[in-house]
Design a binder for these strands. Sequence first.
RNA 1: GCACUCAUAGCUCAGCUGGAUAGAGCAUCGCCCUUCUAAGGCGAGGGUCUUAGGUUCGAAUCCUAAUGGGUGUACCA
Length: 566
Amino acid sequence: MKIKSELSKIIEKALNSANIQANEIVISDATKPEFGDYQFNGVMRLAKELKRNPREIASEVVEHIDTTGMVSKVEVAGPGFINIWLNNEWLAKVTTETLDDKRVGVGFVENPKRVVVDYSGPNMAKQMHVGHLRSTIIGDTLATLFEFLGDEVIRQNHIGDWGTQFGMLIAYLEEQNTDGNTQELKDLEQFYKDAKVRFDESEEFANKAREYVVKIQSGDEHCLELWQSFINASLGHCEEVYKKLNVNLTRNDVRAESFYNDQLPKIIETLKEKNISTTSNGAECVFLEGDENPIIVQKSDGGFLYATTDLAALYFRANVLKAKRICYVVDARQAQHFKQVFAIAKMAGLVDEDVILEHIGFGTMMDKGGKPFKTRDGGVIKLVDLLDEAVVRAKDAIKDRDVHSEEELNSVARAIGIGAVKYADLSISRESNYIFNWDKMLSFEGNTSLYMQYAYARIQSILRKHNAEVSGKIIIGDEIEHRLAVMLLKFEDTLIKASIEATPHTITSYLYELVTLFMKFYEQNPILKDGIENEVKMSRLQLSILTGAVIKKGLEILGIEVVEKI
RNA sequence: GCACUCAUAGCUCAGCUGGAUAGAGCAUCGCCCUUCUAAGGCGAGGGUCUUAGGUUCGAAUCCUAAUGGGUGUACCA
């Protein structure tokens, strides 16, 4: 339910009836329960424009507010706040209707768009490490969210599969193969190191590696075949991680760097034609106003750079994929790069003016000492290892709990362990740096995925115990049920906000609030105990069912599984 | 040097398109299990929202400056 926009309409109507002009009506959440459910604070501003007393205007508006439906009560408070209470019968009616809705009351966006979400982007030469975690899960959440709200989402996994290092890697791969050693690439990191050793010790090998770089780029079949088999193997590793992570990326979503290779000269041509780029020190450069240094799009030796590839990718996404919103879920350290590339793309007409280009930046992964993870030191934690350890720890934590068969234990441990890792990351506002901490990540206390999963499991437990049909209407019987119902209906507004701002943590905050409220409700209002009237029992069961459904849907958008029993 | 970004409780973080007494979790100290899963609930203590100015009826939120972190800055991605 789009509560805020519904309330805006009601306020707008009241303002019209009171003959007051207002251009934008912003409804806020009430800051405290005693101030109602929502509030409208715009009167003070209007009063200033009209040079009138704000409380006077507020009273006039309040008189004209329709309190026969959604709203039960309004009052003027403080200097001119208008506090709004939602009607219990209305809440009961709408929540009851929502019970039958698979989308738990969430509608679709008014103007669906085609959206490209670029995320994950692993380097094929290396194993995925914890640094790839954020892009992968933030991007995946956003893609799922946009899709749920009705946008047409095209996922793009811009993998790094092109560059000089691949000459060395495929030369080494070939050497391994010809030795009759056809074992799989089990450990990419090790493979890279071994190849590097060969490169350094053998002049002959090094030359072959360099030769292979040229050969791949000029389309030599044999080399391309080797290269392709290497990429396939490497991609296989990534897919293993995606599977563990419960992330929705497939081979169809891969659009590698190499894909844009043959389009790069055309990009340079366009920039030259439009006089956007100039030659400086032998390199093709774009000088943007306000930047002291140019963006180099072609090296003096003729080679292309990542800005060039990104321009080609932007062109492709805007004109071939025809996206209207393009989101790059990439480390915040690349903010300047994207700002520049976006500016050039629009200047050169590679992307139409009306296409929204967004860099969804996120903070750096820091170690406990507050230093960024280094890519080349031995201490980098592989993502696979991290995820496996999370599951092991989760399993250890729940092994004495309730009765679980071995099979159940494994699947529950997986949901909890992986969920904990993802939730810990997603619940932090993405722009802040993120301190990687095993203990915190795997802690099962406080604002964690386990708290949500636990609440869900409790609800399922009640339903198992009830073990009969649940029917009947939701009745709002007290304050806590009122607040719970309002919170349940707030889900859509929350998702819309998360979608516009591209902030997954908006969803986790909401879920946390919802679950906290449910826990209070659960403590205060017994459901299955003796002496509870059937009508009340049914209503409370229905409220629990709806809460469970919202938790499940919310976690599903975050890519986190629920469990029936913990 | 220049640019960007951040600074909120002992710790980890919300809140920031200006609104009422700045909120959570962890940690600390109490209370609640013969009662639907106590991995829960209730309560207490803990704050010059880095500092100094400014804008205004009103500033953690907007502007300016300072201080202290982080990041980026011509042929890596």
